[in-house]
Amino acid sequence: MSKVKFYYDSDTLSYKKIERKKRNTVKYAFIFILASALFAFLFVFLASQFVKSPKERALVRELQHMELQYKLLNKKMDQAQNVLSNVEERDNAIYRLYFEANPIPEEQRKAGFGGINRYKGLEGFDNSKIIIATNKRMDILQKQIVVQSKSLDEIAVLAADKEKFLASIPAIQPVSNEDMTRMASGYGYRTDPFTKVRKFHYGMDFTAPRGSPIYASGDGTVTRADNTATGYGNHIRIDHGYGYESLYAHLYKYNVRVNQKVKRGDLIGFVGSTGRSEAPHLHYEVWKDDDRINPINFYYGNLSAEEYSKLLERASLENQSLD
Protein backbone atom coordinates (compact mmCIF):
# COMPACT_ATOMS: atom_id res chain seq x y z
CA MET A 1 0.00 0.00 0.00
CA SER A 2 1.51 3.31 -1.05
CA LYS A 3 1.96 6.04 1.53
CA VAL A 4 -0.26 9.11 1.47
CA LYS A 5 1.69 12.34 1.41
CA PHE A 6 0.48 15.79 2.70
CA TYR A 7 1.68 19.32 2.40
CA TYR A 8 1.01 22.40 4.65
CA ASP A 9 -1.12 25.12 3.12
CA SER A 10 -0.15 28.44 4.68
CA ASP A 11 -3.25 30.14 3.41
CA THR A 12 -5.65 27.83 5.14
CA LEU A 13 -3.26 26.96 7.90
CA SER A 14 -3.99 23.29 7.36
CA TYR A 15 -2.47 20.09 5.87
CA LYS A 16 -3.71 19.00 2.52
CA LYS A 17 -3.29 15.70 0.72
CA ILE A 18 -0.91 15.69 -2.23
CA GLU A 19 -2.70 14.49 -5.29
CA ARG A 20 -0.31 12.71 -7.79
CA LYS A 21 -1.12 13.40 -11.38
CA LYS A 22 -1.17 10.40 -13.67
CA ARG A 23 0.83 12.27 -16.34
CA ASN A 24 3.65 12.99 -13.93
CA THR A 25 3.74 9.37 -12.88
CA VAL A 26 4.25 8.24 -16.44
CA LYS A 27 6.96 10.83 -16.96
CA TYR A 28 8.86 9.82 -13.84
CA ALA A 29 8.58 6.18 -14.78
CA PHE A 30 9.96 6.87 -18.25
CA ILE A 31 12.88 8.88 -16.84
CA PHE A 32 13.64 6.09 -14.37
CA ILE A 33 13.61 3.43 -17.05
CA LEU A 34 15.80 5.53 -19.38
CA ALA A 35 18.29 6.27 -16.62
CA SER A 36 18.40 2.60 -15.70
CA ALA A 37 19.04 1.60 -19.31
CA LEU A 38 21.81 4.15 -19.70
CA PHE A 39 23.42 3.03 -16.48
CA ALA A 40 23.21 -0.62 -17.52
CA PHE A 41 24.74 0.16 -20.93
CA LEU A 42 27.54 2.14 -19.29
CA PHE A 43 28.19 -0.68 -16.84
CA VAL A 44 28.32 -3.33 -19.57
CA PHE A 45 30.59 -1.13 -21.72
CA LEU A 46 33.04 -0.48 -18.91
CA ALA A 47 32.97 -4.11 -17.86
CA SER A 48 33.73 -5.22 -21.42
CA GLN A 49 36.80 -2.99 -21.45
CA PHE A 50 38.31 -4.28 -18.23
CA VAL A 51 36.70 -7.64 -17.60
CA LYS A 52 36.80 -10.40 -20.27
CA SER A 53 34.32 -13.19 -20.51
CA PRO A 54 35.48 -16.85 -20.40
CA LYS A 55 34.91 -17.09 -24.15
CA GLU A 56 36.99 -13.95 -24.79
CA ARG A 57 39.78 -15.26 -22.54
CA ALA A 58 39.75 -18.54 -24.47
CA LEU A 59 39.97 -16.67 -27.78
CA VAL A 60 42.88 -14.57 -26.48
CA ARG A 61 44.75 -17.71 -25.40
CA GLU A 62 44.07 -19.28 -28.79
CA LEU A 63 45.38 -16.19 -30.57
CA GLN A 64 48.53 -16.11 -28.44
CA HIS A 65 49.08 -19.81 -29.12
CA MET A 66 48.68 -19.19 -32.86
CA GLU A 67 51.20 -16.33 -32.78
CA LEU A 68 53.66 -18.58 -30.92
CA GLN A 69 53.20 -21.34 -33.52
CA TYR A 70 53.86 -18.87 -36.35
CA LYS A 71 57.06 -17.71 -34.63
CA LEU A 72 58.21 -21.32 -34.20
CA LEU A 73 57.32 -22.03 -37.84
CA ASN A 74 59.41 -19.07 -38.98
CA LYS A 75 62.36 -20.32 -36.91
CA LYS A 76 62.07 -23.73 -38.55
CA MET A 77 61.92 -22.06 -41.96
CA ASP A 78 65.09 -20.13 -41.06
CA GLN A 79 66.83 -23.42 -40.32
CA ALA A 80 65.49 -25.02 -43.51
CA GLN A 81 66.61 -21.97 -45.49
CA ASN A 82 70.15 -22.24 -44.07
CA VAL A 83 70.37 -25.93 -44.99
CA LEU A 84 68.95 -25.28 -48.46
CA SER A 85 71.35 -22.37 -49.03
CA ASN A 86 74.26 -24.67 -48.18
CA VAL A 87 73.01 -27.30 -50.65
CA GLU A 88 72.51 -24.62 -53.32
CA GLU A 89 76.06 -23.33 -52.80
CA ARG A 90 77.55 -26.81 -53.13
CA ASP A 91 75.31 -27.50 -56.11
CA ASN A 92 76.61 -24.46 -58.00
CA ALA A 93 80.23 -24.47 -56.79
CA ILE A 94 80.94 -28.22 -56.79
CA TYR A 95 78.40 -30.53 -58.40
CA ARG A 96 77.42 -28.48 -61.45
CA LEU A 97 81.00 -27.27 -61.90
CA TYR A 98 82.36 -30.83 -61.80
CA PHE A 99 79.82 -32.09 -64.32
CA GLU A 100 80.29 -29.01 -66.54
CA ALA A 101 76.73 -27.76 -66.10
CA ASN A 102 75.86 -24.07 -65.93
CA PRO A 103 75.18 -22.79 -62.38
CA ILE A 104 71.58 -21.85 -61.62
CA PRO A 105 71.27 -18.03 -61.31
CA GLU A 106 70.36 -16.67 -57.87
CA GLU A 107 67.37 -14.77 -59.26
CA GLN A 108 65.97 -18.02 -60.64
CA ARG A 109 66.40 -19.83 -57.34
CA LYS A 110 64.75 -17.12 -55.24
CA ALA A 111 62.23 -15.66 -57.67
CA GLY A 112 58.89 -14.59 -56.19
CA PHE A 113 55.41 -14.94 -57.62
CA GLY A 114 54.08 -12.25 -59.95
CA GLY A 115 50.61 -11.64 -61.28
CA ILE A 116 47.50 -11.83 -59.11
CA ASN A 117 47.53 -11.34 -55.35
CA ARG A 118 47.86 -14.89 -54.05
CA TYR A 119 47.16 -13.84 -50.47
CA LYS A 120 44.05 -11.68 -50.86
CA GLY A 121 41.98 -14.17 -48.88
CA LEU A 122 44.29 -13.70 -45.88
CA GLU A 123 43.77 -9.95 -45.68
CA GLY A 124 41.47 -8.17 -43.23
CA PHE A 125 42.33 -10.12 -40.07
CA ASP A 126 44.03 -8.88 -36.92
CA ASN A 127 47.14 -10.95 -37.71
CA SER A 128 47.02 -10.76 -41.50
CA LYS A 129 50.55 -9.34 -41.66
CA ILE A 130 52.27 -12.28 -39.96
CA ILE A 131 50.04 -14.83 -41.74
CA ILE A 132 50.74 -13.38 -45.20
CA ALA A 133 54.48 -13.00 -44.51
CA THR A 134 54.73 -16.62 -43.33
CA ASN A 135 52.80 -17.93 -46.32
CA LYS A 136 55.04 -15.95 -48.69
CA ARG A 137 58.16 -17.42 -47.08
CA MET A 138 56.70 -20.91 -47.26
CA ASP A 139 55.83 -20.55 -50.95
CA ILE A 140 59.29 -19.18 -51.86
CA LEU A 141 61.01 -21.90 -49.83
CA GLN A 142 58.88 -24.53 -51.53
CA LYS A 143 59.79 -23.12 -54.96
CA GLN A 144 63.51 -23.14 -54.06
CA ILE A 145 63.21 -26.78 -53.00
CA VAL A 146 61.55 -27.65 -56.32
CA VAL A 147 64.31 -25.84 -58.27
CA GLN A 148 67.01 -27.61 -56.23
CA SER A 149 65.29 -30.96 -56.60
CA LYS A 150 65.22 -30.60 -60.39
CA SER A 151 68.88 -29.57 -60.34
CA LEU A 152 69.83 -32.67 -58.35
CA ASP A 153 67.84 -34.82 -60.79
CA GLU A 154 69.89 -33.26 -63.59
CA ILE A 155 73.13 -33.86 -61.65
CA ALA A 156 72.13 -37.50 -61.09
CA VAL A 157 71.70 -37.95 -64.86
CA LEU A 158 75.02 -36.21 -65.53
CA ALA A 159 76.74 -38.33 -62.86
CA ALA A 160 75.37 -41.53 -64.33
CA ASP A 161 76.49 -40.41 -67.78
CA LYS A 162 79.87 -39.37 -66.38
CA GLU A 163 80.28 -42.76 -64.72
CA LYS A 164 79.37 -44.46 -67.98
CA PHE A 165 81.77 -42.17 -69.84
CA LEU A 166 84.65 -42.89 -67.45
CA ALA A 167 83.99 -46.64 -67.67
CA SER A 168 83.89 -46.49 -71.47
CA ILE A 169 87.17 -44.69 -72.09
CA PRO A 170 89.89 -47.23 -73.07
CA ALA A 171 91.90 -46.61 -69.91
CA ILE A 172 93.88 -49.79 -69.13
CA GLN A 173 96.78 -51.61 -70.72
CA PRO A 174 95.30 -54.47 -72.79
CA VAL A 175 98.10 -56.91 -71.85
CA SER A 176 99.08 -57.31 -68.20
CA ASN A 177 102.67 -56.69 -67.14
CA GLU A 178 102.89 -60.28 -65.86
CA ASP A 179 102.28 -61.66 -69.37
CA MET A 180 104.15 -58.98 -71.31
CA THR A 181 107.75 -59.59 -72.33
CA ARG A 182 108.32 -55.95 -73.22
CA MET A 183 106.75 -52.92 -74.85
CA ALA A 184 108.34 -53.31 -78.27
CA SER A 185 107.22 -50.22 -80.14
CA GLY A 186 105.27 -47.05 -79.44
CA TYR A 187 103.16 -44.53 -81.33
CA GLY A 188 105.11 -42.43 -83.84
CA TYR A 189 107.68 -42.84 -86.62
CA ARG A 190 109.26 -46.30 -86.56
CA THR A 191 111.20 -48.54 -88.95
CA ASP A 192 109.01 -50.98 -90.85
CA PRO A 193 110.28 -54.56 -90.13
CA PHE A 194 109.64 -55.70 -93.68
CA THR A 195 110.56 -52.74 -95.89
CA LYS A 196 112.99 -51.11 -93.43
CA VAL A 197 111.45 -47.80 -94.39
CA ARG A 198 110.73 -45.19 -91.71
CA LYS A 199 106.98 -44.71 -91.47
CA PHE A 200 104.36 -43.70 -88.96
CA HIS A 201 103.27 -46.41 -86.50
CA TYR A 202 99.70 -45.69 -85.34
CA GLY A 203 99.59 -47.99 -82.32
CA MET A 204 101.63 -49.67 -79.61
CA ASP A 205 103.15 -53.14 -79.83
CA PHE A 206 103.20 -55.33 -76.71
CA THR A 207 105.30 -58.49 -77.03
CA ALA A 208 103.98 -61.50 -75.10
CA PRO A 209 103.98 -65.28 -75.51
CA ARG A 210 101.46 -66.71 -77.93
CA GLY A 211 98.16 -67.33 -76.15
CA SER A 212 98.63 -64.58 -73.52
CA PRO A 213 95.27 -63.00 -72.50
CA ILE A 214 94.14 -59.74 -74.06
CA TYR A 215 91.67 -57.57 -72.11
CA ALA A 216 89.13 -54.97 -73.21
CA SER A 217 90.50 -51.56 -72.26
CA GLY A 218 87.02 -50.07 -71.68
CA ASP A 219 83.30 -50.82 -71.74
CA GLY A 220 81.80 -51.07 -75.19
CA THR A 221 80.40 -53.19 -78.00
CA VAL A 222 82.40 -55.48 -80.29
CA THR A 223 81.96 -54.22 -83.85
CA ARG A 224 84.47 -56.50 -85.58
CA ALA A 225 86.11 -59.85 -84.83
CA ASP A 226 87.56 -61.05 -88.13
CA ASN A 227 90.70 -61.12 -90.33
CA THR A 228 89.47 -59.19 -93.37
CA ALA A 229 91.38 -55.95 -92.71
CA THR A 230 94.72 -55.80 -94.52
CA GLY A 231 97.74 -56.36 -92.30
CA TYR A 232 95.88 -56.73 -88.99
CA GLY A 233 95.25 -60.49 -89.24
CA ASN A 234 92.78 -61.69 -86.63
CA HIS A 235 91.67 -58.52 -84.94
CA ILE A 236 88.91 -57.07 -82.73
CA ARG A 237 87.39 -53.60 -82.75
CA ILE A 238 85.39 -52.27 -79.80
CA ASP A 239 83.16 -49.22 -80.02
CA HIS A 240 83.26 -47.49 -76.60
CA GLY A 241 80.89 -44.67 -77.49
CA TYR A 242 81.65 -40.96 -77.06
CA GLY A 243 83.73 -41.17 -80.27
CA TYR A 244 86.22 -43.74 -78.85
CA GLU A 245 87.18 -47.03 -80.47
CA SER A 246 89.95 -49.51 -79.72
CA LEU A 247 91.61 -52.07 -82.00
CA TYR A 248 93.46 -55.30 -81.06
CA ALA A 249 95.41 -56.94 -83.91
CA HIS A 250 97.43 -60.12 -84.79
CA LEU A 251 95.39 -62.28 -82.39
CA TYR A 252 95.84 -66.02 -82.06
CA LYS A 253 92.09 -66.44 -81.47
CA TYR A 254 88.99 -64.56 -80.26
CA ASN A 255 87.02 -64.83 -77.04
CA VAL A 256 84.16 -62.54 -78.15
CA ARG A 257 81.74 -62.20 -81.04
CA VAL A 258 80.36 -59.26 -83.00
CA ASN A 259 77.73 -57.15 -81.17
CA GLN A 260 78.77 -58.57 -77.81
CA LYS A 261 78.81 -56.11 -74.90
CA VAL A 262 82.04 -56.11 -72.95
CA LYS A 263 83.28 -54.48 -69.77
CA ARG A 264 86.70 -53.05 -69.05
CA GLY A 265 89.00 -55.95 -68.09
CA ASP A 266 86.98 -58.66 -69.86
CA LEU A 267 89.03 -61.33 -71.65
CA ILE A 268 88.45 -60.76 -75.38
CA GLY A 269 91.21 -62.76 -77.11
CA PHE A 270 94.74 -64.11 -77.04
CA VAL A 271 98.08 -62.87 -78.33
CA GLY A 272 99.19 -64.26 -81.68
CA SER A 273 101.15 -63.36 -84.80
CA THR A 274 98.57 -63.40 -87.60
CA GLY A 275 98.52 -60.96 -90.49
CA ARG A 276 101.48 -58.68 -91.15
CA SER A 277 103.43 -59.56 -88.03
CA GLU A 278 107.04 -60.45 -87.36
CA ALA A 279 106.58 -62.10 -83.95
CA PRO A 280 103.87 -62.82 -81.36
CA HIS A 281 102.63 -59.50 -80.06
CA LEU A 282 99.53 -57.32 -79.69
CA HIS A 283 99.22 -54.29 -81.91
CA TYR A 284 96.90 -51.92 -80.05
CA GLU A 285 95.30 -48.72 -81.36
CA VAL A 286 92.93 -46.09 -79.89
CA TRP A 287 90.66 -44.04 -82.15
CA LYS A 288 88.85 -40.81 -81.30
CA ASP A 289 86.33 -39.36 -83.74
CA ASP A 290 87.78 -41.51 -86.56
CA ASP A 291 91.37 -40.38 -85.92
CA ARG A 292 94.05 -42.63 -84.43
CA ILE A 293 95.59 -41.12 -81.29
CA ASN A 294 98.44 -42.11 -78.99
CA PRO A 295 97.32 -44.94 -76.65
CA ILE A 296 100.01 -43.95 -74.11
CA ASN A 297 97.63 -41.29 -72.77
CA PHE A 298 95.04 -43.89 -71.70
CA TYR A 299 96.76 -46.18 -69.21
CA TYR A 300 95.83 -44.44 -65.97
CA GLY A 301 93.43 -47.26 -65.07
CA ASN A 302 95.84 -50.05 -64.11
CA LEU A 303 99.40 -48.71 -64.02
CA SER A 304 101.21 -47.10 -61.11
CA ALA A 305 103.03 -43.82 -61.63
CA GLU A 306 106.36 -45.66 -61.76
CA GLU A 307 105.09 -48.24 -64.26
CA TYR A 308 103.57 -45.54 -66.44
CA SER A 309 106.82 -43.56 -66.37
CA LYS A 310 108.80 -46.60 -67.57
CA LEU A 311 106.24 -47.35 -70.28
CA LEU A 312 106.35 -43.75 -71.47
CA GLU A 313 110.14 -43.90 -71.69
CA ARG A 314 110.10 -47.11 -73.75
CA ALA A 315 107.32 -45.88 -76.03
CA SER A 316 109.27 -42.77 -76.92
CA LEU A 317 112.21 -44.77 -78.35
CA GLU A 318 112.28 -44.72 -82.15
CA ASN A 319 112.97 -48.36 -82.91
CA GLN A 320 111.63 -51.02 -85.26
CA SER A 321 107.98 -51.95 -85.02
CA LEU A 322 106.77 -55.59 -85.16
CA ASP A 323 104.15 -55.00 -87.90
Rank of each mutant, 00 (worst) to 15 (best):
Val83Ser: 12
Val83Ile: 12
Asn86Ser: 13
Val87His: 05
Val87Asp: 08
Glu89Asn: 08
Glu89Gln: 10
Arg90Ala: 06
Arg90Phe: 04
Asp91Ile: 06
Asp91Gln: 10
Asn92Gln: 01
Ile94Gln: 05
Ile94Gly: 00
Tyr95Asn: 09
Tyr95Thr: 03
Tyr95Asp: 07
Arg96Trp: 04
Arg96Met: 05
Leu97Thr: 12
Leu97Trp: 06
Tyr98Glu: 08
Tyr98Gly: 01
Tyr98Leu: 14
Phe99Glu: 06
Glu100Trp: 10
Glu100Val: 09
Ala101Arg: 14
Asn102Val: 09
Pro103Asn: 07
Pro103Phe: 05
Ile104Ala: 05
Ile104Tyr: 06
Pro105Glu: 01
Glu106Pro: 01
Glu106Trp: 02
Glu107Asn: 09
Glu107Thr: 02
Glu107Pro: 00
Gln108Thr: 06
Arg109Trp: 06
Arg109Pro: 00
Arg109Thr: 03
Lys110Trp: 01
Lys110Val: 01
Ala111Val: 00
Gly112Met: 01
Gly112Tyr: 00
Phe113Ser: 00
Phe113Leu: 00
Phe113Pro: 00
Gly114Leu: 02
Gly115Thr: 02
Gly115Ser: 02
Ile116Gly: 02
Ile116Lys: 03
Tyr119Gly: 03
Tyr119Arg: 08
Tyr119Gln: 07
Lys120His: 06
Lys120Val: 07
Lys120Asn: 04
Gly121Ala: 09
Leu122Asp: 13
Leu122Ser: 10
Leu122Gln: 14
Glu123Met: 10
Gly124Asp: 11
Phe125Asn: 15
Phe125His: 14
Phe125Ser: 15
Phe125Met: 12
Asp126Tyr: 13
Asn127Ile: 14
Ser128Thr: 09
Ser128Val: 10
Lys129Glu: 15
Ile130Gln: 15
Ile130Asp: 13
Ile130Asn: 12
Ile130Arg: 14
Ile131Gln: 15
Ile131Phe: 12
Ile131Pro: 05
Ile131Cys: 10
Ile132His: 06
Ala133Tyr: 08
Ala133Glu: 11
Ala133Trp: 05
Thr134Ile: 12
Thr134Ala: 15
Thr134Phe: 07
Asn135Val: 05
Asn135Gly: 06
Asn135Glu: 13
Arg137Ile: 01
Met138Asn: 08
Met138Gly: 09
Met138Val: 04
Met138Trp: 03
Asp139Phe: 04
Asp139His: 03
Asp139Val: 05
Ile140Gln: 05
Ile140Thr: 09
Leu141Cys: 03
Gln142Thr: 12
Lys143Asp: 03
Lys143Met: 04
Gln144Trp: 00
Gln144Arg: 07
Ile145Pro: 02
Ile145Ser: 11
Ile145Leu: 12
Val146Ser: 07
Val146Thr: 07
Val146Arg: 02
Gln148Thr: 10
Gln148His: 04
Ser149Cys: 04
Lys150Glu: 08
Ser151Tyr: 06
Leu152Ser: 04
Leu152Phe: 03
Leu152Arg: 01
Leu152Tyr: 09
Asp153Glu: 13
Asp153Phe: 03
Glu154Arg: 09
Glu154Asn: 12
Ile155Thr: 12
Ile155Pro: 07
Ala156Arg: 15
Val157Tyr: 08
Ala159Gln: 12
Ala159Met: 09
Ala159Asn: 08
Ala160Lys: 13
Asp161Thr: 13
